[in-house]
Design a protein around this nucleic acid. Structure first.
Length: 874
RNA sequence: GGGCGAAUAGCUCAGCGGUAGAGCGCCUCCCUUACAAGGAGGAUGUCGGGGGUUCGAUUCCCUCUUCGCCCACCA
């Protein structure tokens, strides 16, 4: 019938691209755009240069974009500095797998060529994620983009290393570390995860040398027995009293080893006797230290597993076998010799390397370590005394707990991609720390030097991010202006890995905290609560959603789920909802703009405002307050929900509908001004969250120049004049009255579009008749009770009577009224009971009692009217 | 073994001392010239179980159950 209308749907793609280009070419993202003494800075967590956008990123960086835009609107000179992390292991893996396809390994290329190749990869394909960031609309200062291996950044890393080395914090030592046999590198304690799987616990007999019998030890890794040096028992364990000092045969080898006493074994567990393998277990290492072993002597501390996780046992059939393969043979052989007492099922916490998924092999290895306790002390203090605040605050405890029990950090990685450790050795092994080989040679008196082959843990350079990105070690203008930064927004899984280390690094080198706030946001899970992961096939691509629904919708849907909760379950529904919201904004704006036209309207005097004008301004004012305060507290959910409710429920459903009756009349300028004002303030408040659509709408308002931008418009402040508790109360009643009227119509099966002649009311506030008539679709409101047949309702003290033609179905009407009556009687009963309780009257707050009394009074009156009405029906 | 978090409408989640809220879904009506990705009206909950504190508990305390996460050297 009707002509198909032109699309009333909002098309985000075109709008979003257009505005992003404009913002960039106008230089809005650079702090220089508007200098100020008040400054705000975020150095964003650098994503891995190999990374591509996932939901966690989308959320994390959207939050930062919001904070940056919000602060800009508040007049701060704002820098949000982007960059990427060289991500040692991840990046090396990418290039190695490329080489593998060419049938090469990195060793075929050699170190120098390989590193060159990685750089080449980085220049060509790295940092894709930053391009994806632009699609989300992030207002980051791309002119200051940093990379953790930029030349000056590299200098910063070396400076810190050398400083700590010279202060004796960094040392080289032989320890049992976590070895990742897949990547063939060490990894730190916090880069491995426990995974409990059912495994086997093998009980093995170690026969005594000097007589009958044997001692039983239990192990989950029988292959390590080849490097056992002792069997330990607890001194208090009566079963083994007097056995210390005796020797046992180490099965499958020709060696004998002593039984020793040590505090380490738990008498409750297994047999109470533990085999000690100092080279392949961190605990056993400690026992070995207590035994006074020389870890450089392979006779004293044998090694039986190499860096590729193969067994090293020359002269045995196990030599060269993979660790798991060797295990099978060893078990078989033990069994054949009658030395295997039993095997039992056992829950074992396997240590899995996060990066490769391989089972970590504890290995005795010489590595660089950083002693942490002296670095940790000031970092603990900074959180304890509140100079750094965590949000949610409970994460401060998580941080402190870890920091107070911090262990030394294994810094070295056996990789080629990364910051190579700036230690050089002369032929005799003397070590020199130096910024370059040249400097090292000079320090060594001209002797030839070779550099340590290892690189630093990637997190070492990440720890310097907040100041190294700003120019340190040079005291640049940026560094002076923007350090300390304001907030770190991060996921909780890198509190130890990164947050703690930045705090330590910043306090140590800058003598100042790196940021004031740490905001920890929720983990984004799949709809059914699973971890989002590419390898599990549960990951979803935010870009796909952005293309379908728009960046603004993508952003909003994440934020509206971001409270102080720990996790977000992300499905398609919320983003559809956000897309619908964009559409609603678009259409409401179209309506408003159609009526506002191109003319700017002066603010009308307060006396010219109608009840709905006062009401919506009051709501707007509250929205300004709530959104501002939610942002202060990082409560994204509160802010976005309030904006959603204000716009959709209050502005569209009520104000726009209420405004319609006046928009054609003589007083049209009043609602025009209110519409424009609401739209303007809404665009500003919503802009940080949905930057594109708000900019698009705002620019259509009269008086907004094409060279103006929301980012540099003012963040709205509450307007005292708009606060109107009276209007709030009155309008709430009117809303109830309108609902009751609409309900009456619907109950009686009247078409919603049909205009009815008269609605009779009693107790309606004077002056609101036109409003109620218009919203409930009546031509007029009359006071009193109609003499003709009618149906009735009560709403907050207002009686409504709807005349109906023909006979009333008395029974149906009585039933309807009775239901209303019943509901109110029930409520009244509860209230009366409470008000009859002297303890309540005595102890409850007076305003609560007063409110209850008023409510009871109203209910009593409504009950009376409904009873009367029912009687009349009979 | 310690610690933290969660349990509220069919689903996803807010609220957190004064008689339960939203969105989606559901039922009824409506293409009323901003919007059907929409409008109007409606139904829906022993707020995980059990104790306690309180005039009053979904909200505070204790305890139990079930999930999730983190930390820890139990072979």
């Amino acid at each position: 019938m009707n002509e198909p209308t032109l699309s009333t749907r909002y098309d985000p793609t075109e709008v979003e691209e257009r505005w992003y280009q404009k913002w960039q070419s106008a230089g809005l993202f650079q702090p220089e755009h508007r200098p100020s003494e008040r400054r705000y800075c975020i150095t964003i967590p650098p994503p891995n240069v190999t990374g591509s956008l996932h939901m966690g990123h989308a959320l994390c960086y959207t939050i930062q974009d919001i904070l940056g835009r919000w602060k800009r609107m508040q007049g701060f000179e704002t820098l949000v500095l982007p960059g990427t992390d060289h991500a040692g292991i991840a990046t090396q893996k990418v290039v190695e797998s490329q080489l593998r396809e060419e049938g090469l390994t990195r060793h075929d290329l050699g170190r120098e060529k390989f590193v060159e190749r990685v750089w080449q990869w980085k220049e060509e394909s790295g940092g894709m994620i930053l391009k994806q960031f632009k699609r989300l609309g992030f207002a980051f200062d791309w002119s200051r983009e940093r990379f953790t291996m930029d030349p000056h950044y590299h200098d910063a890393v070396l400076r810190v290393f050398i400083d700590w080395y010279e202060r004796g914090l960094i040392y080289r030592g032989k320890r049992v570390i976590n070895w990742d046999p897949g990547l063939r590198t060490s990894v730190s304690d916090i880069e491995v995860s426990d995974e409990v799987r059912t495994g086997k616990l093998y009980h093995i007999r170690y026969p005594f040398v000097d007589g009958e019998g044997y001692i039983v030890v239990a192990t989950t890794r029988p292959e390590t027995m080849l490097a056992d040096v002792a069997v330990a028992v607890h001194p208090s364990d009566k079963r083994y009293r007097g056995m210390a000092g005796r020797r046992v045969h180490l099965p499958l080898t020709g060696r004998t080893i002593p039984v020793i006493e040590d505090e380490y074994p738990d008498p409750e567990f297994g047999s109470g006797a533990v085999k000690i393998t100092p080279a392949h277990d961190a605990n056993d290492f400690e026992v070995g230290v207590r035994m006074g072993l020389d870890f450089n002597d392979p006779e004293q501390v044998p090694v039986c597993i190499d860096e590729e996780a193969r067994v090293v046992a020359p002269g045995t059939p196990y030599h060269g076998l993979d660790r798991f393969e060797a295990r099978k043979h060893i078990v078989t052989d033990l069994e054949a010799k009658g030395l295997l007492e039993r095997i039992e099922e056992h829950e074992i916490a396997f240590k899995i390397a996060d990066r490769s998924g391989e089972v970590v092999e504890p290995l005795l290895s010489e590595q660089w370590f950083c002693s942490m306790s002296s670095l940790a002390a000031p970092a603990i203090q900074a959180v304890k005394d509140g100079r750094i605040r965590f949000t949610p605050s409970r994460y401060a405890d998580v941080y402190l707990e870890w920091m107070e029990n911090i262990r030394d950090w294994c810094l070295s990685r056996q990789l080629w991609w990364g910051h190579r450790i700036p230690i050089y050795y002369t032929e005799d092994g003397t070590a020199f720390a130096a910024m370059s080989e040249k400097e090292a040679r000079e320090n060594a008196g001209g002797a030839a030097v070779t550099q340590d082959p290892d690189v630093l843990d990637t997190w070492f350079s990440s720890a310097l991010w907040p100041f190294a990105t700003l120019g340190w070690p040079h005291y640049t203008e940026d560094l002076q202006r923007f350090y300390p930064t304001d907030v770190l927004v991060t996921a909780r899984d890198i509190i130890y890995l990164w947050v703690a280390r930045m705090i330590m690094g910043g306090l140590d080198q800058m003598k100042e905290i790196p940021f004031r706030d740490v905001y920890v946001y929720a983990t984004v899970l799949t709809e059914d609560g699973k971890r989002m992961s590419k390898s599990l096939g549960t990951g979803v691509d935010p870009l796909e959603y952005i293309n379908r629904f728009g960046a603004d919708a993508m952003r909003f849907s994440l934020l509206v789920q971001t409270g102080m909760n720990q996790e977000i379950r992300f499905g398609e529904r919320p983003i559809q909802e956000a897309r619908n919201f964009c559409n609603k904004i678009w259409n409401a704006a179209r309506f408003a703009l159609m009526h506002i036209g191109h003319r700017q309207v002066e603010a009308p005097p307060r006396s010219a405002l109608a009840i709905e004008d006062c009401w919506i301004l009051d709501r707007l004012n509250e929205t300004i307050e709530m959104v501002s305060s939610a942002l202060e507290r990082y409560h994204m959910m509160d802010a976005t929900k309030r904006l959603y409710d204000f716009f959709w429920s209050e502005f569209c459903d009520w104000y726009i509908e209420a405004s319609k009756r006046r928009l054609d009349g003589a007083m049209a300028d009043v609602p025009r001004w209110v519409l424009a004002t609401c739209l303007d303030r809404f665009c500003r408040l919503m802009h940080p969250f949905m930057p594109h659509i708000t900019e698009e709408v705002w620019h259509r308002l009269p008086g907004v120049g094409s060279d103006q931008f929301l980012d540099y418009s003012d963040w709205p402040s509450p307007v005292e004049d708009w606060v109107d508790a009276e209007a709030r109360k009155t309008f709430a009643t009117l809303q109830e009255v309108v609902r009751a009227a609409r309900n009456l119509r619907q109950e009686f099966g009247i078409n919603p579009k049909e205009m009815l002649p008269t609605l009779f009311t009693q107790g309606l506030v004077a002056g609101s008749e036109d409003l109620v008539a218009s919203l409930a679709r009546f031509e007029r409101i009359a006071a009193g009770v109609p003499s003709t047949p009618h149906i009735s309702a009560v709403a907050l003290g207002v009686d409504l009577h709807l005349p109906v033609e023909g006979l009333i179905d008395v029974q149906a009407e009585a039933k309807r009224l009775s239901a209303q009556l019943e509901k109110r009687r029930r409520e009244l009963h509860q209230l009366s009971e409470r008000l009859a309780n002297p303890m309540f009257l005595e102890r409850a707050k007076p305003e609560v009692v007063a409110a209850d009394r008023a409510a009871a009074e109203q209910l009593r009156s409504e009950v009376r009217r409904l009873e009367e009405r029912l009687e009349q029906l009979q």
